[in-house]
Design a protein around this nucleic acid. Sequence first.
DNA 1: GTCTATATCCAGATAGAC
DNA 2: GTCTATCTGGATATAGAC
Lengths: 210, 210
Amino acid sequence: MARDENTNERLKAERKEKILNGSLKLFATRGLAATKISDIADACEMSQGLVYHYYKNKEAIFNELIAHALNKMIEACLWLEAQELPVAQKIHMAVDGLLTLMQQKPENAYNYLLIAQASLSEAIPEEAQQLLQEKTPLPHEIMGRIFALGQEEGSIKPFPPQEQALLFWTTLKGLALQKAIHGATLQLPQTSLITGMFLKETYEPKPDSN
Amino acid sequence: MARDENTNERLKAERKEKILNGSLKLFATRGLAATKISDIADACEMSQGLVYHYYKNKEAIFNELIAHALNKMIEACLWLEAQELPVAQKIHMAVDGLLTLMQQKPENAYNYLLIAQASLSEAIPEEAQQLLQEKTPLPHEIMGRIFALGQEEGSIKPFPPQEQALLFWTTLKGLALQKAIHGATLQLPQTSLITGMFLKETYEPKPDSN
DNA sequence: GTCTATATCCAGATAGAC
DNA sequence: GTCTATCTGGATATAGAC
């Protein structure tokens, strides 16, 4: 009995997962209003009715995606902050990591694209709007703390850390958008061009010594 | 006779203008699909039917707005390029000018917001899509030329000019978005923080000497 | 030119068979 | 759980009076 229920639960979760995966790209590239449930059903290779079996409506799917994207972003920031490294190296890592991610798996940028879409549109569900308002500041604050620390260390330029954090995110998000839209065509800039906004001196990663 | 026709033409043009003005904000902040004709009619304080008297449909309005926004952007670039000034000063002027514009009249950022909305959504009319594809590269090329010139002059950092142009635009567009969304709340960064990406040394504007 | 009323269409959501 | 068929609502677009 209990086993069957567990299996069912798992299957249900997998289905929901499938719907989320299928709809992420659609919402991210077309927006909420322009994405039809029938599009989602097609993308997931299931019937329109079945989508409603798992989600109450279109907004519910959208909200869950937003929540997920925001959480991933915050997690990544916290992870970065927790690393025991000089700030210059952290910034380099963060920028380089994000650029590489965009380069290799543009679909990983869909989360950013989704957030961008959502935050620049007023036509989104109440719940998503609240989530955004509540959680967007966090990544900014965390990066602000990191920049402030870097100024104490002496490696970061002496601008207000909050401004630096703002610029950090707008720049990276902007690039993620460009990349997600133009795909392979777009040649992303090199890491040090971006880090040059923040670092007094270019951080030179040590060559691997093995 | 001819005078009446002229007057009519002018009135007609004014009406169309009114519709464009009213719908720009809506399209920019909500997107094409989420903007209803009735919203536009309300914003322009005219009836729904009258909107259709001047424009065939929603897409026609949208297309005209996109064309207009792109042209303004290109004009601004060409103007900048034509100035006879050291490149360092041009870059400073451009960034400073755009930041000031966003600060003082956020609604002037709607054009950028519209373009951003449009370019990150695949759900836009064929015509708008073509316009974007055709005309978006121009501002990038122009800024690329300016950066290349600056490298000859020795004031610009030796990164590939195209990468610099890309970064220039994504950063400024990104800020325009943030500003348009968060309005007065958002404190924009200072000019030199951004120009630091490009300039070898901070450009110090000469104090007015009158 | 401008409005109101209405036709048409299409997407969201539900019902019910399997 | 999954599908097909259907209902319903709302938005686009048109018709026609003034």
